[in-house]
Design a protein around this nucleic acid. Sequence first.
DNA 1: CACCAGGCAAGTA
DNA 2: TACTTGCATGGT
Length: 227
Amino acid sequence: MTGTGEYLREMYRLLYERFGPQHWWPGDSPFEIMVGAVLTQNTNWANVEKAIANLKSTGKFSLRGIYDMPQEVLAGLIRPAGYYNIKAKRLRNLLEMIVRDYGGDLKGLFDESTATLREKLLKVKGIGPETADSIVLYAAQKPVFVVDAYTYRILSRHGMILDNATYEELQGLFMDRLPEDVQMYNEFHALIVRAGKTFCRKRPSCPECPLAWWGPSRYAQEEDSRD
DNA sequence: CACCAGGCAAGTA
DNA sequence: TACTTGCATGGT
């Protein structure tokens, strides 16, 4: 019997073979990655890059530098990333937590255990599960699997999950069956996004997709088998 | 022109 | 609890 874990490893292998390393997360520092994680919420990465460039152009691209900006000024700078008023507030909420609980020291926050770090981030208004996990994995380099709409879409189309599966259920699907490997989680999520962007836009499937040979029935039949 | 992008919280019934 | 809506720019 072939289990879900083996399918996931095969899926990773096929995607990596097709697309190669994705070099995520683009950014010069953990701080920049964290900021980008908030700015990219439901937003094209190209627009986030413009917003980050604006922030850097002020010469105040640091935790304190941004924290000290009036919210309206911050909003104006991140305008290209869209939702600029709400994202300015969300960034401020995040930086406020780090200033309040860690004296503004990002490393202090990232030195927390994986579980504590994730919980601290989720308490911030405007940081949901995907943004929190993106910060944990890509900025703090701790092993959590990041789930997004593409992850849901791909697994759903291959019959590996129920349509009403929650974020935590999808995350568990990966984390219960794959080794805790920061580099592999990094690459796997990035590859899923890459495949989703390339192939899963409109049509339910397409023959050029490296996963196209995976029929949904194949998964449905073996849903209950385990490694 | 419509559609969507590396979400999340708040409002409604 | 289960949907729906608001937030917004910029590329295809």
